[in-house]
């Protein structure tokens, strides 16, 4: 592509996305006015913005709570998921013993576990963290295990032909080869962790964006509910971008983007 055309493309990249957002907001506003919708049903975008600005301290505080639940839950999922995946791929016995349990657990709708976890862990951060962990855990285990099992056979043979120790094979071949899979799993997991945290807040909590959303709707404060919704979306995007940033840091370890699975 010629440089002048590339510059033209960049200009479009900067201008068009905000234009799309502006159009969507205008459409939203127009619908509210055209169908004379009450603020309770659908507040105008301006009202949502006003509510967000007015209650920004409250939203920021609740944002922080949900963010903590998400990050801790995801971190715990990563810290436990990767070693468990390593264990079940390294040992056939462990695999045979625990894979069925893992699959069975994975097929339980995690929302259904939320009330039980609440009884066990209370209405504090622990129960939210546990649910966020639970939903983020499986994609990490499954993707890490898949990555560890898909090491090219020839690389394993090369290591074996040099009489590499098990640890050498793992640390120099299998694990680095699985890293792209772990990153892919993490991208899915972090998005799920946000959902898990909000489910926990819905089921029983006195703080967090999910709680704010519930109380705002129960008080028929729709502008605030919508503001909380946008804050949640921002949180999800932020968490995802954090994983993408981590991926950038790992860049020297990852295959070229074209070969990646996602």
């Amino acid at each position: 592509m010629r440089p002048d055309r590339a510059a033209g493309e960049r200009w479009k990249r900067v201008v068009y996305p905000p234009l799309g957002i502006a159009l969507a907001l205008a459409l939203w506003h127009w619908i509210c006015v055209q169908f004379s919708l009450s603020t309770t049903v659908l507040p105008k975008p301006g009202l949502v913005l006003a509510a967000a600005l007015e209650r920004r301290d409250l939203i920021a505080a609740e944002f922080w709570v949900t963010l903590k639940e998400t990050v801790y839950g995801f971190g715990l999922a990563l810290a436990l998921g990767v070693p468990i995946a390593v264990a079940i791929t390294a040992s056939k016995t462990l695999n045979l013993m625990f894979s069925p349990i893992l699959i069975a657990l994975q097929s339980v709708p995690k929302v259904a576990l939320a009330p039980i976890l609440l009884v066990w862990l209370g209405t504090g951060i622990e129960s939210k963290l546990a649910i966020a962990w639970l939903v983020a855990f499986f994609p990490i285990v499954v993707d890490t295990a898949a990555g560890l099992q898909s090491t090219p056979r020839e690389l394993l043979e090369l290591a074996r032909s040099l009489r590499a120790s098990r640890w050498q094979v793992f640390s120099k071949v299998q694990f680095p080869a699985a890293l792209p899979y772990i990153v892919t799993g993490s991208k899915v997991a972090v998005t799920l962790a946000v959902i898990g945290a909000v489910i926990g807040e819905f089921v029983g909590s006195s703080e967090g964006l999910g709680y704010l959303l519930l109380t705002a709707t129960s008080q028929i404060d729709s502008p605030l509910a919508f503001a909380a919704l946008f804050a949640l979306a921002a949180l999800g995007i932020l968490a995802y971008l954090a994983v993408v940033a981590a991926e950038r840091l790992l860049e020297p370890w990852l295959p070229p983007a074209a070969d990646r699975r996602d």
Binding site: E154, Q168, A177
Partner: peptide
């Protein structure tokens, strides 16, 4: 041993790939 396909490690540069047997 040289395989039918190069089977280089994508996360290592050329020199690091060549040095892999020496590391092992």
């Amino acid at each position: 041993f040289v395989f039918q396909t190069p089977n280089l490690m994508p996360w290592r540069n050329v020199l690091e790939n060549v040095l892999f047997p020496m590391e092992i």
